[in-house]
Design a protein around this nucleic acid. Sequence first.
DNA 1: AAAAATGGTGGGTGCACACCCATCATGGGG
DNA 2: CCCCATGATGGGTGTGCACCCACCATTTTT
Lengths: 172, 172
Amino acid sequence: MTAMNDATRAPEGAGPRAAPPTLTGLTTYLLSRTGKAARTAFAAELAGQGMRLWHMAVLAALADFGPHAQRELSVRLAIDPSDVVKVVDELAAPGWVERARDPADRRRVVISLTQPGRAALDGLTVRAGEVQDAVLAPLDPAERRQLHALLARVHAGLPAGPGAGRGRPSPP
Amino acid sequence: MTAMNDATRAPEGAGPRAAPPTLTGLTTYLLSRTGKAARTAFAAELAGQGMRLWHMAVLAALADFGPHAQRELSVRLAIDPSDVVKVVDELAAPGWVERARDPADRRRVVISLTQPGRAALDGLTVRAGEVQDAVLAPLDPAERRQLHALLARVHAGLPAGPGAGRGRPSPP
DNA sequence: AAAAATGGTGGGTGCACACCCATCATGGGG
DNA sequence: CCCCATGATGGGTGTGCACCCACCATTTTT
């Protein structure tokens, strides 16, 4: 990887727009780039409706698994409990989810999806499909399925949610 | 996608840790998640050495295509010119790149990779490989090649670099 | 020679994300 | 009945990223 520069050098007056092979040779780089593109494109879609990615995640969790206490949402989505509150706040404002104190344990607040919320989620899913179509444009349906299957395996192998993430640079 | 919740509902007392199928059914979601995982894992690696992702990108561009004027780096990597300055600043500090005014056009500052810089890049590439191994652990070599090929096609089809990204809400 | 264009630099902004802590209500055990 | 654990909430913090603008040096154009 250290001996390709002299030959590969681009004509300097032209349009040097290609990404460095050292990077594009890394699957993680491609993953990161395409992932970011997908994420960003869809986030823009959501932003048009005043939402962010977590909003859809919460709606999806409620739709797929039924009502959750906020704590459960926090665990399932690997999101900070305190952030769940804010997201739920914003979902409750347009009436997409409902808060109800659990009568059995009045500390718990059970969140459930409303009809409008389900409709909103369906709309978002459609939008997501459109974005996906745009991103995966170079692939035919079979290849898309293949990609999906591979990614699903990789995704299943990931340690924790996003929590495993941030750099925590200096552990003194 | 609206009729799977009643049956799929998880036992509420158990450990509700699975991600919502509505999300995992979206390739873009998997892409975003796995991409973020890869990105984050590697960023943590880099952070351990006081670097961020752009630093490696610049090193890679220099290694693959030879010296660049900062403007050229900016175009190639689709990064803001003003940010190139800062990244190059930080790469020049440890002596990994060198600034030299172009004698033909004394406005231009030509950045070139030094020997230590190349060594540093090689080290980073190894680290990246390790991270990649961890992320792609569930896949065998053939599958990894397949994934790489698919992602390369998707990546090639992306509009611009990261610039196409952020919410640019109002383009008046 | 003055004016416009180009390249580089520094400073500062806004946003999304992840994270942490103090506070309050409730539930349950000593 | 008091104390502690749990759940929810609000407020605030730090970081990385992308972006923008104002300024200076130099080149190119007029």
